[in-house]
Amino acid sequence: MSSYYKWKKRSISKKALKKNKLKQKIKTLYFEFKQRYGSPRITAELQALGYRISRVTVAKYMKELGLKSKLSKKFKVTTNSKHNYLIAENVLDRDFKATRISQKWVSDITYIQTKDGFLYLTTIIDLYDRKLIGWSLSNTMSADDTSLAAFRMAIKNRPIEKGLIFHSDQGVQYATKKFTNILASYGVIRSMSRKGNCWDNAVAESFFKSLKTELIYRNKLIFKKQMESEIFQYIEIWYNRKRRHSSLNYKTIEEFNNQNKIYKNVA
């Protein structure tokens, strides 16, 4: 065999070996992150590890391997907007960008089915870094157990800055006097979505979509105690620490905040 063909054969073998190693790494990451990542986040993870690879190539290899991120399903709205409390204007007006922490917070409530009944998850997200700074998992839909409990956690984790906008839907948990009085005592500006318009609170809705896609729908029905543990792990260990967020240019929240060096003593 001529030296040219020997060289060509060796070259093809090296390329094939490199491709196989890369595909194996992609497969490892895919299952390491519990099948939650599609090609954009797998690409970001590889690049963070020092690989020089494009999203197109990753998508191609994932297709060859038969790897897909979990698909989403629709879920029902849980908040009740049929009440006589005062509704706030839509001050946020779908402006989901924030230039500093505690400038804009968004909140929402969803239900989670378990073997022994429903749990209700209330979340509060800071739009600056998309961190879930307050949350509550409860057996009831009362304001004490939902909006108030989540808000108490949020103000422990982050200081309230002057002019903070707090946005939610028109649910009674956010409109009741007890909750609105607490917001007023901190000088918080209330904002509410238009009735039945989920796009006015798209970031909060997006979190629930991710949660239900990446955790709830992919598991069999479990009991409340186990679900409480799963939700804690998802929020505090996965979402707030490890997950790469498309809104942060596929950085983790910690990487984003370290890059911007915006705070040291804020959770």
Rank of each mutant, 00 (worst) to 15 (best):
K6Q: 15
K9Q: 11
S11E: 14
S13P: 06
A16M: 13
K18M: 12
N20Q: 12
K21D: 09
L22P: 00
E32D: 15
K34E: 13
R36D: 14
G38T: 06
T43E: 01
L46K: 04
A48V: 02
A48M: 02
R52C: 13
R52F: 08
S54D: 12
S54Q: 14
R55M: 15
V58Q: 07
K60S: 09
Y61D: 07
F75M: 12
K76P: 00
V77D: 02
T78A: 15
T78L: 15
N84G: 14
N84Y: 09
I87L: 15
A88I: 12
I101T: 11
Q103E: 15
T114C: 14
D116T: 00
L119I: 00
D129E: 10
L132W: 00
I133Q: 04
G134Y: 11
N139I: 01
S142K: 12
A143N: 04
D145K: 06
T146R: 02
T146G: 06
S147Q: 03
A149F: 03
N157V: 11
K162D: 14
G163E: 11
L164T: 02
S168L: 03
D169V: 09
A175S: 08
K177M: 05
K177S: 13
K178Q: 07
T180A: 07
T180V: 10
I182R: 06
A184E: 12
G187D: 14
G196Q: 08
N197P: 04
D200P: 04
N201Q: 10
F207K: 06
F208M: 13
K209M: 05
M227N: 03
E228C: 12
E228P: 00
E228N: 09
Y234R: 01
I235L: 08
I237N: 02
I237E: 08
Y239T: 12
N240K: 09
R241H: 04
K242F: 01
H245W: 06
S246C: 04
L248D: 03
L248P: 02
N249F: 08
N249E: 11
Q259D: 14
K261H: 08
K261W: 06
Y263S: 12
Y263M: 03
N265V: 10
N265H: 06
A267K: 03
